[in-house]
């Protein structure tokens, strides 16, 4: 085999590093998606089992209490900015939101005394899950 002196030199270590980085960022995206879909799954994946289990139980219970006290899962209606933002917070709870929607829960009862409490529980459960996703990301990239 004759090597062509004009062929561009390949920087093998740099290529390997780029491939490894691509793989790592792909894994990070999957990790974050899993952490969003199932509260605490990111920490379980990273071997922080106790934390993951506690996050799962706490966020699931908060979301369930929110539904039980007549909270509402808000529609994606951005003509009312706060309604749209609350819908984003609700969907941040991951699979809980989709199960509740599929079961027809979360219609909300404005006349119930606990309606606003329910909304607070549902919204905060979703927002806490977002914080948990960010924490899982930080752990995965070695910041924590």
């Amino acid at each position: 085999m004759v090597l062509d002196a004009r062929a561009p030199e390949v920087n093998l270590p740099a290529v390997c590093a780029a491939v490894a980085e691509d793989k790592q960022s792909g894994a990070l995206v999957v990790l974050c998606l899993a952490a969003w879909a199932i509260p605490g799954a990111g920490h379980l994946w990273l071997g922080r089992r106790v934390k993951g289990a506690i996050f799962f139980v706490a966020i699931t219970l908060m979301f369930s209490i929110g539904l039980a006290v007549h909270g509402r899962l808000f529609p994606f209606d951005f003509s009312e900015p706060f309604v749209g933002l609350m819908a984003l917070a609700d969907v941040s709870a991951g699979f809980l939101y989709f199960i509740a929607s599929a079961l027809g829960s979360g219609a909300g009862d404005v006349t119930a005394a606990t309606y606003e409490y329910g909304n607070a529980f549902l919204i905060v459960a979703g927002l806490l899950n977002l914080l948990v996703v960010l924490d899982a990301y930080d752990v995965a990239v070695g910041r924590k």
Binding site: I54, A58, M62, I65, V69, T114, Y117, L128
Partner: peptide, 18 residues
């Protein structure tokens, strides 16, 4: 589940834990 105090304590508990 309709008790405001219970809901206050439950909310505070879960948020504090997380």
């Amino acid at each position: 589940m309709q008790s405001h105090t219970f809901l206050l304590v439950a909310f505070a508990f879960f948020v504090s834990v997380v």
